[in-house]
């Protein structure tokens, strides 16, 4: 027994080294599996606070681009308004009915919440975005993050006042996507090479693809992402060496360098779909 103590004391530094290394790896592994092990409120609020201050300053340098992106989006939405359209047929008459309920029984599925980006990275292998809006302001895990120009990522961690999103520029990110022309399915990932380009895999060779084709979110990804949102445009077409599928290089629609405001999208019917899918034997 005494020998054991002598042994431990003699190699105390080495054991301490192994223990600390073990803790690091435990944190790393656990964090990457569940995304919530270590990101507790204290650490999150502290770094969130610093990030907020930094972002307040940096924000001024991007005002021009931010304003332009927001006004473009406004313009796009104005074009979709009912008042922008005119009925070409004057023989038809429209009557306004006085029913207070929507008789078509339309149900809201996606709810948009605005939020400010306070920290954003593009240069790592695994990039994350910190957002100044948390559980108290209605953010939930797995909500989609959408910028003025297109998809940005997905919420993975929620804190009282801040939340953290996994950017599309992340080795672990995977989004089900469609080519808008022909509605061909594929999966959009990031290879870590260039923050302006994503990679779309598993596109069947029977598809006709051209440079400049739009890539949108598919209805399969609808649990988080509303279908039909722009992810990017095809920049390069390659054939996979072994399999019979295309590998497409996608230019991102979102400019990740100058991200300032995003919308968080909540799928209100998410629970219903999930419980139903879980019940499937």
């Amino acid at each position: 027994m005494r020998n054991i103590f002598v042994f431990i004391r003699r190699f105390f530094t080495f054991f301490l080294f192994l223990i600390l290394l073990g803790i690091s790896f435990a944190i790393l592994v656990k964090y990457n599996q569940t995304y919530r092990a270590v990101f507790d409120n204290t650490a999150g609020e502290l770094t969130g606070n610093f990030d907020k201050r930094y972002s307040d300053i940096e924000y001024y340098f991007h005002l021009t681009e931010t304003n332009k992106a927001l006004s473009d989006q406004n313009n796009h939405l104005l074009n979709l308004l009912g008042t922008s359209f005119d009925a070409p047929d004057s023989t038809k008459q429209y009557k306004i009915d006085s029913l207070s309920n929507d008789t078509l029984h339309k149900v809201r599925k996606y709810l948009y919440l605005p939020a400010k980006v306070v920290n954003n990275a593009v240069s790592n292998e695994f990039n994350y975005i910190t957002i100044y809006r948390g559980a108290r302001q209605g953010v939930k895990k797995d909500m989609a993050v959408v910028g003025p120009n297109g998809v940005v990522g997905k919420i993975i961690l929620v804190n009282d006042n801040y939340s953290r999103a996994m950017s599309l520029l992340n080795g672990k990110s995977k989004v089900n996507a469609l080519l808008k022309k022909g509605l061909v399915a594929g999966a959009v990932e990031w290879d870590g090479a260039d923050p302006q380009y994503l990679v779309m895999r598993k596109v069947t060779r029977s598809a006709t693809v051209q440079r400049g084709d739009s890539v949108i979110t598919s209805n399969i990804s609808g649990l988080s992402y509303p279908p039909g949102l722009l992810i990017g445009t095809v920049a390069q077409i390659k054939q996979e060496s072994a399999g019979g599928s295309y590998v497409l290089k996608i230019k991102t629609a979102t400019n990740f360098y100058t991200l300032q405001y995003v919308s968080l999208v909540e799928n209100v019917l998410r629970n219903e779909q999930e419980t139903l899918e879980d019940q499937t034997p």
């Binding site: 600390l20 290394l21 803790i23 690091s24 790896f25 435990a26 944190i27 790393l28 592994v29 964090y31 990457n32 270590v38 990101f39 770094t47 610093f50 990275a121 790592n124 695994f126 990039n127 994350y128 953290r164």
Partner: peptide, 10 residues
Amino acid sequence: FSGVPGLLAA
């Protein structure tokens, strides 16, 4: 501050 706890500590 950089997002992945444990990565730089090791």
